[in-house]
Design a protein around this nucleic acid. Structure first.
Lengths: 227, 227
DNA sequence: GGGATAATGTACGAACTGGTTAGTTTAGTC
DNA sequence: GACTAAACTAACCAGTTCGTACATTATCCC
């Protein structure tokens, strides 16, 4: 134990001594677990496999997360948190309602595409009838900015007379989500059944354009010019 | 062994003697397995549990289906077969393109709704990256009538000038599928996050109407009357 | 530097779970 | 009515998998 200085203050600063690093260990476990659960589901994932891929050990998983379900719950929360944080970066202020909606849909489409792991976790959670989501206060409190965005855009569009009135923002969001989610969630089987690669870049572009157009046409006021 | 007549010809006719009934046993196992897999996934389902719910035994599962994956594969095929057979009952001959498309979308929406088990199996299979679907020659050969229907409707619509040209029937089908599939697959989490019951009858009606309208507006020719 | 507490490593065990072995019963055939 | 193949049963096995007991080391605070 000749070195004494490097061991001081391992909290916030550059962690010279890596020997004991609770926060890092926790995060490392959660990252690995997130991947494994997204890949294999709750029952499919193996604690031993997760432990092996960790820089830590199985003992630490139980130390920090209690049991397998506790770990899964954290992984689920983690997935939601990451995606929600990403959503916040959308900037649509100053755009016209049509441009803003276009941007929002394009963003959502790409955002889903970028976060396949999240999509898989949501699928898995739906298979479990949302029984873990139900337990998570944290996820319920992560307010969904997407709704605010689309609600604002929509009401501005109605005011300006370019969107027709009487629609429900939550239902609009539902439609956008459906089209964007499906693109990732069912890509594999859909591609197989129809013998076409729905993950190919040009195909994705087409689907994205279709999705935007679909939404614009759906909300368009009766006297709006054709697209 | 006093009775001799009732034992004759147990093949096609009313099976008086249930003692040995290969076809029935097989079907019974498959039914139970389908439910269990749809409910718990491949890794989540338990062979012992399936066996227990069966009128038969675990040994019979292995006798008829080889192993767990074999059983899952049959259950998957079973799900696809049932749903495809149901699709065939759609009758849209004689309807105008718009009426036919309306009917098709409504039917698809309801059909998905009625076959939650199938939806769940497709989700599960996507989680597995379609590795079992890939193995199934039977599913690949079940041709998808939905595409034929929508392709026919669409081309008639274009001919009659009520639909705009240049669209891809497979992509149209993709859009219909996305909207209808999502309604079942993500109902639970979506309802939880947005605090509204998306399975409620009136809500379903609204979503169905929206979906129809979305498609009609998407394919509508430029000079078509507003909806 | 000593004592308390948090963090970590090692080894193990009990229950579960997919799969099998060995043998029995039934249905139909000659 | 003896024989054979298919259908079926019960008990069992071996590998896996979640979880834990126990011991040890690092860090913090005074």
């Amino acid at each position: 134990m000749a070195v004494t200085e490097t061991k001081r203050k391992p909290k916030q600063e550059a962690k010279a001594t890596r020997a004991q690093d609770p926060e890092g260990t926790r995060r490392n476990i959660l990252e690995v677990a997130s991947e494994e659960f997204a890949l294999n589901g709750l029952s499919g994932a193996r604690i031993d496999e997760i432990a092996a891929r960790t820089r830590s050990s199985k003992r630490m998983i139980y130390y920090y997360f209690g049991d397998k379900e506790g770990l899964y719950l954290r992984a689920l929360e983690n997935a939601y948190r990451e995606v929600r944080e990403g959503e916040a970066h959308l900037d649509i202020e100053g755009l016209s309602p049509i441009a803003a909606l276009t941007r929002l849909v394009e963003f959502t489409f790409e955002h889903h595409h970028r976060h396949e792991e999240f999509i898989r976790m949501v699928m898995i959670e739906n298979i479990h009838n949302g029984q873990y989501l139900e337990q998570s206060k944290e996820i319920r409190e992560l307010n969904v900015t997407a709704i605010d965005h689309i609600a604002r855009i929509y009401s501005r569009g109605v005011e300006e007379g370019v969107f027709r009135p009487g629609l429900d923002p939550v239902e609009l969001h539902w439609q956008v989500s459906a089209l964007c989610f499906f693109n990732v969630s069912n890509r594999t089987t859909f591609s197989m059944i129809f013998g076409r690669d729905f993950g190919a870049p040009e195909q994705l572009e087409r689907l994205k354009r279709n999705t935007v157009e679909m939404l614009l046409r759906f909300v368009a006021a009766a006297d709006a010019p054709a697209l």
